[in-house]
Structures are given as structure tokens and as C-alpha cells.
């Protein structure tokens, strides 16, 4: 059963990711990425990471992708057209390099032993539950959490400074 679910959602994720690359219109690319994000969220649930799955939908598909779609519509983009034709052959080099990168990643993961997911129902499983993530986040990982707030403050200031009109 779990294998069937994995295969369905993995196929959906990879298919949407390939569609992201194949589409020339950025709007369709953004919609394909939302499909990949939703499939990954389902896979997180099969890994018993309910909190991360919810965050994936709320933060990624909800907030970040809305920002992307908003900018795409604001700029009213036309089709993505390759302008420099003389470097066209360079694009076909991407395929062997992609194969090499994939082989490298799989070679690194080759040494990972296939261990079993710890047994037990979701209610008595600590990892992945909201309370366990909250407890770790505000005790052991308090410093990274606080540094994150500084990062977001810098991003807010940076976005305002960069997107502001010069004469404004």
C-alpha cells in the first residue's frame, strides 16, 4: 500500500518537475512547481512528518508560490525565447552533465543502508509531531531560530530597497 502511494506521488512529483522545465510560459512552470510541492507534501505524510507536510502546503504552496505568481502576473511576461542562437549546441551538453550529476548523487546515496521506518502509530510517534518539533525548536535549536528572524528582517529591508523606484 505504501509503495503504491510512493510510486503515485513520486511519479506526480517528477512529472510536474519535468513539465516545469518543458514549459516556455513561466506561469505554467509555476503551476507545475505547485504540483510538485503538493506531491512532496503527500510524501512527507507517508514519512510521518505531518508538521512539515502542513508547512509545505501553507508556506511553500501558499505563500512563496503566491509571491511568484504575483510577480509573473505583475510583469505580464511573454514566452521564454532563447535569444543567443549561436550557443544553442551548449544546451545539449546539459543532458550528459545532468546524467553525471544524477549518477554522482546516487553514488553518494549508495552507501545508505536500508533501515526500517520505526514502527508504531502516529499518536505515539515523537518525531514529526508538532509538539516534538516545537520543543526542540525552542530549546536545543533556539539560536538558529532567532538567527532566522534576523534573516527575514534583512530580506524585508532588502526587498523594499531593491524594488523601490529610484525617484520615489
Amino acid at each position: 500500500m505504501e509503495r503504491v502511494l510512493f510510486i503515485i506521488f513520486a511519479a506526480a512529483a517528477v512529472g510536474s518537475a519535468l513539465n516545469l522545465i518543458a514549459q516556455r510560459n513561466p506561469m505554467y512552470s509555476a503551476l507545475s512547481l505547485i504540483g510538485t510541492l503538493a506531491s512532496l507534501s503527500a510524501l512527507y505524510v507517508t514519512l510521518h512528518a505531518q508538521f512539515v507536510a502542513a508547512m509545505q502546503i501553507i508556506v511553500y504552496a501558499g505563500a512563496i508560490m503566491v509571491l511568484f505568481v504575483f510577480v509573473i502576473m505583475l510583469l505580464n511576461l511573454q514566452e521564454d525565447q532563447p535569444r543567443i542562437e549561436k550557443q544553442q549546441w551548449l544546451r545539449y551538453l546539459a543532458v550528459p552533465f545532468a546524467a553525471a550529476l544524477m549518477a554522482e548523487a546516487l553514488y553518494v546515496f549508495r552507501n545508505v543502508k536500508d533501515i526500517r521506518l520505526p514502527a508504531g502509530s502516529d499518536s505515539d510517534r515523537a518525531v514529526g509531531a508538532t509538539w516534538s518539533i516545537g520543543t526542540s525548536l525552542f530549546t536545543d535549536y533556539l539560536l538558529p531560530f532567532e538567527v532566522t528572524s534576523v534573516l527575514i528582517l534583512m530580506a524585508i529591508v532588502g526587498a523594499i530597497v531593491l524594488a523601490r523606484r529610484e525617484d520615489g
Binding site: F51, M55, F68
Partner: peptide, 27 residues
């Protein structure tokens, strides 16, 4: 649970990166 906390941090970085990056793209 450390891996899932790291995902939490990565999502925050992605949000910050999207905000700054899209501002650069607009400019």
C-alpha cells in the same frame, strides 16, 4: 527531529530568497 527542523530553516531561507530575488528581478 533535527532533519525536520533543518527543513523548517530551509523553508525560511527559501522565503527570504524569493522575496529578495523577485525584488532584484523586478528592478
Amino acid at each position: 527531529v533535527g532533519g525536520q527542523l533543518f527543513v523548517f530553516i530551509v523553508m525560511t531561507v527559501a522565503a527570504a530568497e524569493a522575496a529578495v530575488g523577485l525584488a532584484i528581478i523586478i528592478s
